[in-house]
Design a protein around this nucleic acid. Structure first.
Lengths: 145, 145
DNA sequence: CAATAAATAATCGTGCGCGATATAAAAGCC
DNA sequence: GGCTTTTATATCGCGCACGATTATTTATTG
């Protein structure tokens, strides 16, 4: 039996470094929008469905309020969103796109295509790989409970 | 043509969230060793090959000195490594495992098996997926140059 | 050999990301 | 209605992660 502690055999290390590599590809594209990568993901979630709560966004993005609250405040300062406390339930904060935030979508529309190109694969292949990685994430999440 | 800005179709989002999910699985295991996940990766790299330079580790782990230097100082404070400036080339800092650092490997030996189990897949399947993710990373790295 | 360039770590500032905790509002309970 | 519990967000501390810059040493060049 070979030594199981080989870095290059770790799927975790592959995912960890692939995540950083994706970030490096996104960085110059997102710089033109004035967004970081997590901020971009939050905007994508809001372009899909405006008016989500902090908790709802956290569930979709798998992030805690301790991560999201300061991130959303930075998006608010940038003028892309508004954070309004709900009238019906004062505990809840609703996130809404500003007009500038809505307009930003047009500038972001080409980004996914750039990523597909950088990956050097066709869309179908990426979709298959994407589904496999999602399945891995779901299995891991189940194991943690 | 459908809206390309769907979060759940992004391979980047899959990788990003899978990376966090892996971290959540590792956390309780690594807590028993007193290591964070990036610290664990650095230790794995050193168990593979002791006496690497900061730059060499950075190349292997895809990390900058601005990330590694403070991380390695924490490992030094924990007593797992020593940081010695090279005699031949004073610019270089060589990282060596302490005796405690060497011993720690025994406690870490079971971790990869736990991850395989948490993934709910067999080893061959994981190896295949791992290779695919590495290929993605390499394609992305090539595109950035 | 002196001036310049390149290489190697370290430092600094910013933004995640999370666990633990705090705060406040809402819901449930006697 | 007052008391406890739950829920939703915010705050704080710590550790990455990186880009930009700096300091020091080594290599190169004229």
């Amino acid at each position: 039996m070979q030594d199981p502690l080989k870095l290059d055999d770790f799927i975790c290390f592959a995912v960890y470094t692939a995540s950083h590599a994706l970030n490096r590809v996104y960085k110059p594209l997102l710089d033109t929008l004035g967004l970081t990568y997590p901020q971009y993901l939050a905007m994508v979630a809001l372009w899909e469905k405006d008016g989500q709560t902090v908790g709802g966004l956290g569930e979709k993005l798998f992030l805690e309020s301790s991560t999201l609250t300061p991130l959303l405040k930075r998006l608010e300062n940038a003028g892309y969103i508004r954070r309004d406390r709900s009238r019906e339930d004062e505990r809840v904060v609703v996130i809404r796109l500003s007009e500038e935030g809505v307009r930003l979508k047009e500038k972001a529309i080409g980004i996914p295509g750039c990523i597909v190109e950088a990956s050097g694969r066709n869309a179908a292949d990426l979709t298959r790989l994407q589904a496999e990685i999602v399945a891995l994430r779901e299995a891991l999440d189940r194991s943690v409970v």
